[in-house]
Amino acid sequence: MKLSHEELERLVQRSVGGIPDRRAPRSLEGRVFAELQRRASLPWWRKSYAYWPAPARGAFFVASAVFAAVVVAVLFNLIRGTGVSGLAGAVSQRLGWLTLAQSLSNVAWQTGATILRSIPPLWLFGSLGLLAACYATVIGVGATAYRVFVQKAR
């Protein structure tokens, strides 16, 4: 006898309906309480904002507001025409280490570019091609092994 789709739906529903729940593992309760205890023992700054003490939340709010005000003030000055150079000068007076960092990054960039230019293009593209081929081989072998050994085993 053939079952229509509707009959099959009813048969499956009757077959799976009213099945009792599976018993949860005994370890579940212990795991939940251990995790709750671990979370409770964390210092406040490692918890989410909602769990911070009120003074810390207030201080964070004030700091955020000050930061936002500074950003708005800087943008406002830029738009008003104080000029990027004027602003950069004012900032660099206070943050001299930024100039040093910029010099260092320039040196690193120029050194890298010089090294890259000195490598013959054939070597460069050959190495990149070899790297891509190795990567594709590893992924291909992994995917084949997974499909052959893991999926077939299921």
Partner: peptide, 25 residues
């Protein structure tokens, strides 16, 4: 295609609930 089965009430005539659960899972 439609499925060829006899027309049972369920798949579990005479099977207790716990065994039904295990078979379905």
């Amino acid at each position: 295609s439609e499925i060829e089965f006899a027309a049972p009430e369920t798949f579990f005539d005479g099977v207790d609930a716990e065994e039904r659960r295990a078979l379905v899972e």
